[in-house]
Amino acid sequence: MNIALSNTSDKPIYQQLFERISAQILKGELENGYCLPPIRQAAQELSISVITVKKAWEELERCGLIHTITGKGCFVAELSSDRKLQIRDEMISKQMLLDTSYYKSFGLTLDDVIAMLKKVY
């Protein structure tokens, strides 16, 4: 698992943590049945608070990306590639919604954005 968190970002840390891990699960970097580190251990290693990790894990579970086996830990859920795509698209469109309002505030049209995106991507 590879996690880089930023303390200065606008996003709460649990959100960042959730996004990093879900991206890795959805890309298939973390395979089915992969065991996430225990909450308290992860908190210590990432030097963030226990509750922050707990929240991220809960969010992952809510999205169906991981499941908890009491006494054993949290495991990456078995997901069909269709389901993975569906979850991915949901997350991306959420982010796009946010980004779009930002572009709109500068008065960009959809075509402007697509053109710029092509250049940058």
């Binding site: 303390n7 709460p12 840390i13 649990y14 030097s47 963030i48 608070s49 226990v50 509750i51 922050t52 929240k55």
Partner: peptide, 23 residues
């Protein structure tokens, strides 16, 4: 506290303004 605290209790002028999970 931004990084390490799980809960925050905020006191102001001898009264607890709020106490709860940090986020």
């Amino acid at each position: 506290l931004e990084k390490c605290a799980d809960f925050i209790t905020f006191i102001e002028d001898g009264q607890i303004v709020r106490s709860g999970e940090k986020e």
